[in-house]
Design a protein around this nucleic acid. Structure first.
Length: 121
DNA sequence: TAGGTGACGGACC
DNA sequence: CGGTCCGCCACCT
């Protein structure tokens, strides 16, 4: 394929985006994960913000379940800069049976993935 | 080169 | 439960 010439300054973690995509793709339908969680799963702790950037660059519609990723506060980041993708996310979650408040708040712990061992439905 | 911003997270009040 | 501050790192101007 059109292999581009790798720049001399290759990032320390090549394939960051791909790792994020792979982790997000693992989130089961009807469940939730956080940005920090994804970052941790791909071996990039503390890079939650970068995960957000990767998802932001996703061309919509996307086969990836990107909508199942929310912030650690259990809220969808509602912001005008998202050009409506925040409301799309809310709608997709509602379609999967996850109640989302008009302000983007949702019962994260109740749908968290992977499941918490101690807490029972 | 420097400064501001953001699909984040945690601590603090 | 809401607002604020700091740390974090990539992106944009």
């Amino acid at each position: 394929m059109g292999s581009v010439s790798p720049p001399p300054g290759e990032p320390p973690k090549p394939g960051f985006d791909e790792r994020v995509w792979a982790a997000v793709a693992r989130i089961p339908r009807g469940r939730l994960a956080t940005y920090g969680q994804i970052a941790l799963l791909i071996g990039a702790p503390g890079c939650a913000r970068q995960v957000g950037w990767t998802l932001r660059r996703l061309p919509l519609p996307s086969p990836l379940p990107w909508h199942r990723v929310v912030n650690a506060q259990g809220r969808i980041a509602m912001h005008p800069s998202r050009e409506g993708s925040d409301w799309i996310q809310r709608q997709l979650l509602l379609a999967e049976g996850i109640p989302v408040d008009a302000e983007g708040r949702l019962p994260l712990e109740q749908f968290r993935w992977p499941r918490s061992s101690t807490s029972g439905g």
